[in-house]
Write a protein that binds this DNA or RNA. Sequence first.
DNA 1: ACGCTCGTTGAACGCTTGTTTAAGATGCTG
DNA 2: CAGCATCTTAAACAAGCGTTCAACGAGCGT
Lengths: 238, 238
Amino acid sequence: MLNMGSTSQDVSAPEAEGPGPGLAAADRTTRARIRDAALRRFAASGVDATSVRAIAGDAGVSPGSVIHHFGSKDALRVACDEHVAALIREQKRTAMAAGAGLDPLAAFRTYEEGPPLLAYLARTLTDGSPHVAELIDEMVRDAVDYMAQGEASGLLQPSEDPHGRAAVLMLWSLGAVVLHEHAERLLGVDLLGDPAATERYSLPAMEILGRGIFTPEADEQLRERVTEAYHDETGGRS
Amino acid sequence: MLNMGSTSQDVSAPEAEGPGPGLAAADRTTRARIRDAALRRFAASGVDATSVRAIAGDAGVSPGSVIHHFGSKDALRVACDEHVAALIREQKRTAMAAGAGLDPLAAFRTYEEGPPLLAYLARTLTDGSPHVAELIDEMVRDAVDYMAQGEASGLLQPSEDPHGRAAVLMLWSLGAVVLHEHAERLLGVDLLGDPAATERYSLPAMEILGRGIFTPEADEQLRERVTEAYHDETGGRS
DNA sequence: ACGCTCGTTGAACGCTTGTTTAAGATGCTG
DNA sequence: CAGCATCTTAAACAAGCGTTCAACGAGCGT
């Protein structure tokens, strides 16, 4: 393991700026190798079930070296969170510059510069990382803006609650990714993998998002009943 | 701790058949108390992060007693899976007998005989329990049947892929529950709690499921483009 | 060549984990 | 009462955990 630069311990990130993606091969900085190994292990088995020794083994270093570079396992986890968040933000920026997608789902389809990224997100969405939460909030804000544009251009219907609609769609999309194991069993689709091979998921999803599932008459009845139930304070169903 | 029955170690379950719910208070069989304590701990902190000693402490017994009753921590986890699955099946049966709901979401709204049940489900949906997987499959099958009835009665639109539609709706509903933490932050709604106080989630959801999000013209264009892209084998977008 | 810093390591520490074990309590049965 | 089965516990066990530490080697400015 040679020292391949002037300073290889730099907390700020001058490393993920090359043309290639941030999750390359086996060389790179020791620190980056450890982080990438941790990313994959965390994504595959969860943070608690992953030992520092396993990460060190994958990265080809000693357990002490992992601690030396990140201070603690928890700090390593935070570094992974920040790195994934930064990578996704970058990806989102380039995807946005390349041209708009079709729906909020399309935004996620571009998140596959490698399965580990989505897999890590699917894991950490459920164990409460502040950085991931901030990232989700940001994505919802962007979705609101983006859907307002779609509404203005006649692509999307207007909504009584634009923020609520964007948030629910985001929850559904992310939720499906988190439950990718069940999606694979139920639909035979790998939501973490190739976005071109997800039609068994995206076709039903687009059918629902296209016309809804209720008949227009049932929708109207439902809407009346719900609004009156929520506005009537004396008693919904007890 | 007195012995409060003839036999208090019975693997088959003659305990969850009373009129009251299965998650009662502090007395009951020692075995049941341990299982319920484990259920709450597992739901709150995850299985890996929960120690046998913590469960024993909550149940008011020694760690050895936990192992004596269940054999191992993993077997205790399986027992929790089976118990939750049985409880949800029972709840589903009674809800189905009481009268049909409005949509697949409504089926979940009835799953709150106490937050721990849904919380446990939200946890274990992501760490691959075979029993939970079987339960989900079963719920999707029921949803297909139920939605076929809705379709026949003019409530729901027909679908090109009834199983796919039901599965996607199930993934979305369960996914939102799994991401309840983000739902709370984004929408101010507790999806694990009182089903009467979830309008900030269910109103946007019903708006989407009612009319969809795309305008009819955009939907038609989208449908054409997608089907031709998937049917054209020479090359989707490269 | 010196001193200095830094990356790296293997060994060890303290702690928690799940589980085992031997012993004691309790109630039922003969 | 004796015998038995069951429940329960405190104590101990081995294993694995995250982390610390002292030592070593390499690069580098002076």
